[in-house]
Amino acid sequence: MIAAAWQIARKDLRQELRSKESLNAALSLTVVLLILFSFAFDPAAEDSKQWSGGLLWLVYSFAGALIVNRSFARELMNDCLEALRASPVPSSALFLGKAVACFLILMGVELTALPAFCIFYDVSLLGAPWTFIATLALTTWAVTVLGTMFSALTVNLHMRELMLPVLVYPMLIPPLVAAIELTRGVITGEPASEIWFRLLIGFDIIFTALAVALAEVVLTD
C-alpha cells in the first residue's frame, strides 16, 4: 500500500511541477495576502510579535485551501478519476498519496513564502527553529489530510471551490489555534505550553486514521 501511495504522490507531484497551476497561484496568493495584511495590522507596531504568527497561519491556510481544491478536481479532466478508481491501487493508498502530494506542495509554498514573512514583519524564527519546523509539519499535515478528504467529498459539486473552504475551515480551527499559539511562542521567545503539540499530534493521528478508514467509502460508488 505504501508503494502504491508513493506512486500516486509522485504522479501528482510530477503533474504539479510540470503545470505549476496551483503552485504559482498559491505562492502569489501568500505574498499578496502578506502585503494586504500589512495595511490592516501595522508590522512596525509594538505588539506585532504577538499577532504576526496568527497572521502567518491564516495566510498558510488560504494557500492550503487553494492547493487541496485542485487535488481531486485535477483528475476530472479526461475522466482520470474513473481510471484511478479502476486501477488496482486501493482507495486508501490513492487518498494517502494525494494527501502526501498536497503536503509536499504546501510545505514548499510555505517554506518559500517564509523569508518574505520574516522580512515584511521583522520576525525571527531562529530562536527555536525546531519547534517551528515541527509545528509547520504537523499543522500542514492536519490541513492537507482534512483538506484532501473534503476535496474528495466535494469533487463532483458545481460549487466545490466555494464549498470546500466553508466546510473545512471550521474543522481546522483546533490545529490552527495550536499552530498560532506555538508560533507566537517561537516569535516572542516565551515557549508555549506543550499541550498544543499534544493537540496537534492527536488531531493528526485521529483524522488520518478516520480519513484512511473512510477513503474506501468516499472513493468507490
Binding site: 467529498l153 466546510l167 480551527i173 488531531f203 485521529i206 478516520l210 473512510l214 467509502v217
Partner: peptide, 14 residues
C-alpha cells in the same frame, strides 16, 4: 455521512 463522522470528531476536539 462521512462529513457527519468528521464533524463529530472535530466537535470533540474543539
Amino acid at each position: 455521512a462521512v462529513m457527519a463522522i468528521f464533524a463529530f470528531a472535530s466537535v470533540i476536539f474543539t
